Amino acid sequence: MRVYLPCTLPALARVVTVGELGPAPLTGYAVTPALTEWYASGDTEELEYVALTEAARASLRMLAADRADGLDVAARRVVIAVDVPESDVSMGAELEERARVRLAAAVPLAEIAAAHVDDLSAVEDVEAAIAALPAADGGDDDARFVVDGAEANDLLWYATQEIPELVA
């Protein structure tokens, strides 16, 4: 099963250094039965894009949390794609989002299928989205529009062997 795990560039650098993404449990996004039922007209590729987009939103929140903690992190969303046995994935009613899943174990670097990262041209939109998150969460429609604007930027695909160079 393909699972999309939200991340940041500093966290991805730790993956390269430590050799795994963790610690567990890890929250990710995947094509779940609930997502398939909700998005009845979509094919597998469209559903995977929805899961990737949900992970990118979670990455945006990770960036905002890092900034709130005083960390100077690049305003680029990161999503790590992994293929794991479905038996390693927990999903169900306790997970409030349709695509949200949990992995019970850390993911070794060797098992990462790819990384998806914002291009440098997206930084301005991602910065604006980070700044707008609190107001968007408070119900401000204009702020929600700004947050959604980050999604207008497609994430670039990086093969596993490109990850060390990406974070260098």
Score class of each variant (00 low, 15 high):
1 M>L: 14
2 R>T: 03
2 R>M: 03
4 Y>H: 13
9 L>Q: 02
14 R>I: 02
17 T>L: 11
18 V>M: 05
20 E>F: 11
21 L>M: 12
21 L>D: 00
22 G>D: 13
22 G>C: 12
24 A>W: 09
26 L>A: 10
26 L>P: 02
26 L>C: 07
27 T>E: 08
28 G>K: 00
28 G>P: 01
29 Y>V: 07
29 Y>T: 06
29 Y>K: 03
33 P>C: 10
33 P>E: 01
33 P>I: 09
37 E>C: 07
38 W>F: 15
38 W>G: 03
40 A>Q: 11
40 A>W: 11
40 A>G: 06
41 S>N: 04
44 T>C: 04
45 E>F: 06
48 E>S: 00
49 Y>S: 12
56 A>E: 03
58 A>L: 02
61 R>E: 14
62 M>G: 03
63 L>G: 03
66 D>H: 12
69 D>F: 12
69 D>Y: 07
71 L>Q: 13
71 L>W: 10
81 A>D: 08
86 E>S: 15
86 E>W: 06
87 S>Q: 12
92 G>C: 14
92 G>E: 08
92 G>P: 12
94 E>F: 08
95 L>Q: 00
96 E>T: 03
96 E>W: 03
96 E>G: 00
98 R>T: 07
98 R>D: 10
99 A>Q: 01
100 R>F: 02
101 V>K: 01
101 V>P: 00
104 A>E: 11
106 A>E: 05
106 A>C: 04
106 A>D: 12
107 V>T: 15
109 L>I: 05
112 I>Y: 04
112 I>S: 04
116 H>P: 01
117 V>T: 08
119 D>G: 05
120 L>D: 15
120 L>C: 02
120 L>I: 06
120 L>V: 08
122 A>L: 01
124 E>K: 13
125 D>K: 06
127 E>M: 03
127 E>F: 02
128 A>M: 08
128 A>Q: 09
129 A>K: 01
130 I>P: 05
131 A>R: 14
132 A>R: 07
133 L>Y: 07
134 P>M: 09
134 P>Y: 13
134 P>A: 12
137 D>P: 02
138 G>S: 14
138 G>Y: 12
139 G>L: 09
139 G>R: 08
139 G>I: 13
140 D>W: 06
141 D>C: 02
142 D>Y: 02
142 D>Q: 06
143 A>D: 04
145 F>H: 12
145 F>K: 13
145 F>R: 15
146 V>D: 05
148 D>N: 13
150 A>Q: 12
150 A>N: 14
152 A>T: 13
155 L>Q: 09
155 L>V: 06
157 W>S: 01
158 Y>L: 08
159 A>L: 14
163 I>L: 11
164 P>N: 15
164 P>Q: 13
166 L>Y: 09
167 V>C: 10
167 V>E: 06
168 A>T: 14
168 A>W: 05
